[in-house]
């Protein structure tokens, strides 16, 4: 399909009105939290941050199709997926605040910690899917990654393994057109990432990643297929990040303003709003309430994040090894000593 064929999907008939409204509220919540997070990074309240604005449909749509027992292996931009799958916003913020606690989901939330090195989470997910299959658990695994990850060896090895072992695994690629600043055409020769599935005898599907309904339905069938022993799927959602790669990046150096404008016109939230209006389930009062709700959810998470005690240096050392090696223990001691003496601290 062409990403230019932007039209109101007729597939929404397969999705309940409640679900449509829920999608809208979740997308709105994530956008609000996303903008707040960028601002907080500038204020020094978060260490760094990877914005997701523009990719809400791909994330919310796919995560809503998961069952709570399913296991998610995200990269660093999947705050929307994490939230829908049960990770409290407060913990997501804590992660970007540099806290170890931000990696720990509440009990029963099957979410792996964020993987920043590109594509490294894909083999992890493959291992988890193999475990689920060997244990005959009613669990499927999904791993999220970007277009850049599909040029990494980890991706190819994991794809091959998952296909040949018929694992209950979904490879979910958010193709936002850029591997940081490298545009897709300079990074891979294929027209669609989904084509790469053919090399491993796997099914590859491309969807309009800014159409939350299309993403949801495609993900739902991939989950069903995996859960019923049908094997893995590579699902590619074509989307666009409106902001920069991270708060340490300036996307205007490598993207034309006109391109960003074009994608703003394909805003996933505005598109769902169109559907809701056609179904007559969109009213100003409803939106007002929803926005207030979203804002208070996010603001409460911010307050909760801020009220955590200051981060301690121990965390940097304590969770690297099961048993801390001698050298690391010495380093830790020195670091703590320097900290208390303020040798190189600022005043």
């Amino acid at each position: 399909m062409s990403i230019d064929s932007i039209r109101v999907s007729l597939k929404e008939d397969h999705v309940s009105e409640d679900m449509l409204q829920r999608m809208y509220e979740l997308m709105w919540t994530m956008r609000y939290m996303d903008r707040r997070s960028v601002a907080m990074q500038r204020q020094g309240r978060l260490g760094t941050y990877a914005p997701l604005e523009g990719q809400e449909a791909a994330q919310i749509g796919s995560a809503l199709a998961l069952r709570s027992q399913d296991f998610v292996f995200p990269s660093y931009r999947e705050h929307g997926v994490a939230y829908v799958h049960g990770m409290p916003l407060e913990r997501i913020l804590l992660y970007w605040n540099g806290r170890y606690d931000g990696c720990i989901p509440p009990d029963g939330v099957n979410l792996f910690p964020v993987s920043v090195p590109i594509a490294t989470q894909i083999p992890h997910a493959t291992g988890a899917a193999l475990a689920a299959k060997m244990r005959a658990d009613d669990q499927i695994v999904v791993t999220y990654f970007g277009d850049g990850a599909t040029s990494e060896g980890d991706f190819h090895e994991a794809m091959n393994f998952a296909a040949v072992a018929d694992l209950p695994l979904i490879f979910f690629c958010q193709n936002n057109g850029y591997a940081i600043s490298v545009p897709l055409r300079k990074q891979t020769k294929v027209k669609q990432i989904a084509q790469k599935a053919a090399a491993y005898g796997m099914e590859g599907i491309t969807v309009d990643g800014n159409d939350v309904i299309e993403v949801y339905l495609a993900m739902r069938s991939a989950v069903e297929k995996a859960a019923n022993g049908g094997g893995p799927t590579l699902l590619e959602a074509i989307t666009y990040r409106i902001g920069s790669h991270t708060t340490a990046d300036d996307a205007s150096r490598y993207r034309d303003a006109s391109e960003v404008e074009m994608w703003k016109a394909r805003d996933p939230i505005a598109r769902l709003e169109k559907v809701l209006r056609e179904r007559d389930i969109f009213s100003d009062t409803w939106v007002k309430e929803l926005r207030e709700r979203a804002e208070s959810v996010v603001n409460e998470a911010i307050v909760a994040m801020q009220s955590e005690p200051p981060v301690s240096l121990d965390q940097l050392f304590d969770y690297v090894y099961q048993d801390m090696p001698e050298e690391l223990a010495m380093q830790k001691q020195t670091a703590l000593l320097r900290q208390t003496k303020g040798v190189d601290g600022r005043g």
Partner: peptide, 8 residues
Amino acid sequence: AIVELSSP
């Protein structure tokens, strides 16, 4: 980059 700082 040019970045905007907002009030905490």
